[in-house]
């Protein structure tokens, strides 16, 4: 069962990711990304991170990709680009491929070589049980408002930046409109 779930999710993740990179139509790329996101969410569930899985779907699928689609549709950039004519130069694509494979090799080596050295253990991750369905969430909450309370408070500043930033970028004055 575990294996089955993992394989399915992994295929979703990889196919989606390749779709993002290879599909020429931005909308299709966005849809591929949703596939990846769902795959990741499933993997989260498989790793006992129920809360995160839900948040992943809500935030990513529910907000981020929707925003992407909005932008694509609003700007009308939804026509397919011809990937071959993308001005890439002759070197860049193979170079990027080599870099990417190199990175993958490096990372894989790192994680495989060190698979036995992950020996520091914590207090345990609570999984959802019949008695305490919210255990995982409580634990995360404790972590957020305990060890990471500074980070949590900082997110508020981060969001303010995002909001103010969008205002700065989006607001147009009359003078600009006539100018442009």
């Amino acid at each position: 069962m575990e294996l089955f779930v993992f394989v399915c999710a992994a295929i979703m993740v990889l196919v989606g990711a390749l779709g993002v990179v290879l599909r020429s139509n931005p909308v299709h790329a966005a849809l591929s990304m949703i596939l990846t996101l769902f795959g990741v969410a499933v993997l989260f569930v498989a790793r006992e991170a129920n809360f995160l899985a839900a948040v992943q779907v809500i935030v990513y699928a529910g907000a981020i990709v929707v925003l992407f689609l909005f932008v694509i549709m609003l700007l009308g950039v939804d026509r397919a680009e011809d990937l071959r004519t993308e001005p890439l130069g002759n070197v860049q694509r193979p170079l990027a491929l080599v870099l990417g494979i190199g990175m993958f090799a490096l990372l894989t080596t790192a994680v495989v070589r060190s698979r036995d050295s992950l020996r520091f253990k914590g207090d345990g991750v609570k999984t959802a049980t019949l008695e305490d369905a919210d255990g995982n969430i409580r634990q995360i909450a404790r972590s957020i408002f305990g060890d990471y309370v500074v980070a949590f408070e900082l997110t508020s500043v981060l969001l303010i930046v995002a909001v103010v930033g969008t205002v700065v970028l989006a607001r147009r004055r009359k003078s600009e409109r006539t100018a442009s």
Binding site: Y148, A151, L154, L158, V161, V164, G165, V168, L169
Partner: peptide
Amino acid sequence: LIVLFLGLETLSLALYV
């Protein structure tokens, strides 16, 4: 490191804008 990352992002996002 997580706090650092958030600080970094706050700074960076503001700078992007």
